[in-house]
């Protein structure tokens, strides 16, 4: 078992739920809230709070629109988000190789 070096890890990405958000959005270009919720198996409140945190960190871009008079939020990773995730994964791989 190799423990993380918490000094080097990106703590915003490191949370399991946020990590899952990154993983989903790296696979699809953009995803609606319900799609993310389905794939991550998170509750509305928990997912919303974590998406908000990623959005505030500049990792996520959100598009809000009304579809059939119902609000719909679509999320995608920003360039900063993609880069940070790649660095995070590279960090994990380095840790494994050590």
């Amino acid at each position: 078992m190799i423990d993380f070096d918490y000094q080097k890890i990106n703590h915003i990405i490191h949370s399991r739920i946020r990590l899952a958000v990154f993983a989903v959005l790296m696979s699809v270009e953009e995803a609606e809230f319900t799609f993310l919720r389905e794939k991550i198996k998170a509750t509305d409140g928990n997912l919303s709070a974590n998406l908000k945190r990623l959005e505030e960190a500049g990792y996520l871009a959100v598009k809000k629109e009304l579809v059939n008079r119902k609000p719909r939020s679509t999320y995608r990773l920003t360039e900063k988000g993609k880069k940070s995730f790649e660095l995070y994964v590279a960090g994990l791989e380095t840790l494994i190789k050590k």
């Binding site: 078992m1 190799i2 423990d3 993380f4 399991r16 990590l19 899952a20 990154f22 993983a23 989903v24 696979s27 794939k39 991550i40 994964v89 994990l92 791989e93 840790l95 494994i96």
Partner: peptide, 12 residues
């Protein structure tokens, strides 16, 4: 650990 996280990312 890192391996678990990488496996989790891959799975998702």
């Amino acid at each position: 650990n890192a391996e678990e996280d990488l496996a989790f990312i891959r799975r998702v």
